[in-house]
Design a protein around this nucleic acid. Structure first.
Length: 406
RNA sequence: GAGGCCGUGGUGUAAUAGCAGCACAACAGGCUGUGGCCCUGUUAGCGAGGGUGCAAAUCCCUCCGGUCUCC
């Protein structure tokens, strides 16, 4: 039985505690969902995820479609069995790849576009009304991708994405959308959003399985009118949940505005998933504006690149100052990695490019995110979310120029 | 002892008279619906001394170091 229940609502913000029940277990919300693109959270065994108390993972439809193929996964009995994960699972629709394999690569931008050293006014607009960029071509019917594995051309339509996701068999699935670029013009973003809306209806019609919850996706880029329109439209359709996708702005200030506009117009009875967001400071912002689910590669990717998350901010273990630092990895962390290994040892492992470094850092970062979310939940329960947020940000130092405007 | 060849950042190399460049390493920053990559900065060099030239890593001499051949 698939359902979403709201348990507690914060009086001073839109933060709330809830629970999503799926056929493979429950997800307490707010929840951080690690990404398992190819059916694996890089470097970790599902048993370790359970040990860390990760509640759900998100796999990627486009990537699994390319290899090993949706039919093979179905033949095995679904993605849960295939990867031996018995908890809730999500699959992305492939819509993000329209951006990440297209304009994202072509123009070197992330979904929150920001160019260090450049002011917003200096960021040149790269958008035009062409529907073709890089290896991706968008049309009314769907999107064609040229595979980066073998050069083959695949066509993803809303119907096809749903079909693949039904074969994979995750508990929560997403409508096929176009994720636009933060630098897209108003006109292109509008055109794309309207198309994504038509696709949303086609996804609902294409869906056949009753044991999967389908999320619609709000687009509209950084433009107020479009975001509000998209939020209202997606909220009006019979989706199980709602994803907030796409270009979230060119700066954090713009991202905050997007969240504000969405939060004022969204159907609050449905779980809201802020797609692809996962830096701690951004999770706090999302929770404040009523977001329930977050998925992000950030903690796991950062870990593989030698950076661990701590309450005082990011720690780059590759820095030479850790060469002889024999203190525990993160000061107040109770995870088994921090209890057993020193900064100096991990510094050495990263310098030596040992795989163990990736595993240990990934384990810690996910543990950190789970603890972080637990604290957020506890704060909401106590009616002290905004105080918690303020205290957390006071300690969590970041020199990132992106962190400019909260 | 005689002769040949060779000495360019930490390492490997390019420039053969005309702005000493590249790669890796080192040092630091970035990474938000995943390629473990990648991107961006920074530091750092003509073995030593002398000569010729407007100009020398480059030509000449001495020394130092390496390497090979012969006695």
């Amino acid at each position: 039985m698939l359902k979403f229940t709201i348990k507690t609502e914060d009086k001073h913000s839109k933060a709330r505690l809830g629970e999503i029940t799926t056929f493979n277990g429950k997800i307490t919300t707010p929840c951080f969902v690690p990404v398992a693109t190819y059916g694996a959270v890089r470097t970790l065994d599902p048993e370790e995820l359970k040990e860390i108390r990760v509640e759900a993972v998100l796999a990627n439809t486009y990537h699994l479609f390319e290899r090993p193929g949706a039919d093979l996964v179905k033949e095995c009995g679904g993605i849960h069995k295939f990867m031996n994960w018995n908890g809730p699972m999500l699959t992305d629709s492939g819509g993000f790849q329209v951006f990440s394999l297209g304009k994202g690569i072509e123009h070197g931008v992330g979904k929150i576009g920001f160019f260090p050293g450049l002011s917003v006014s200096k960021i040149k607009r790269i958008s035009d009304n062409k529907n073709r960029f890089g290896n991706v071509k968008v049309a009314e019917e769907g999107v064609t991708f040229r595979s980066y594995l073998n050069g083959k051309v695949y066509e993803f339509t809303p119907e096809f994405s749903i079909k693949i996701q039904e074969k994979l068999g995750a508990d929560l699935i997403f409508a096929f959308d176009e994720c636009t670029s933060p630098l897209d013009s108003y006109n292109y973003t509008k055109l794309s959003m309207e198309r994504t809306h038509r696709w949303a209806k086609r996804c609902i019609e294409a869906k056949t399985r009753e044991d999967q919850g389908l999320f619609g996706i709000i687009q509209g880029g950084r433009y107020k009118r479009l975001r509000i329109k998209s939020t209202k439209f997606i909220s009006s359709l019979p989706f199980f949940g709602i994803g907030i996708g796409g270009a979230l702005g060119r700066t954090k200030r713009e991202m905050r505005n997007v969240l504000l506009w969405v939060s004022e117009n969204i159907d609050r009875n449905k779980p809201a998933h802020l797609l692809g967001i996962g830096q701690p400071e951004d999770v706090l912002l999302g929770v404040e504006y009523g977001m329930d689910l977050f998925d992000c590669v950030f903690p796991t990717r950062l870990a593989r690149h030698g950076v661990i998350l701590t309450k005082n901010g990011k720690v780059n273990l590759l820095n030479s100052k850790y060469k002889r630092d024999f203190s525990n990895l993160a000061e107040h962390c109770k995870c088994k990695v921090c209890k057993r290994f020193s900064k100096a040892y991990l510094h050495h492992l990263f310098k030596s490019k040992e795989i163990l470094a990736h595993r240990l850092a990934t384990y810690h970062n996910l543990y950190f995110m789970v603890e972080f979310i637990n604290e957020i939940r506890e704060a909401i329960k106590l009616g002290r979310f905004l105080e918690y947020k303020r205290d957390f940000l006071r300690n969590y130092k970041t020199r990132s120029p992106k962190y400019d405007s909260f």
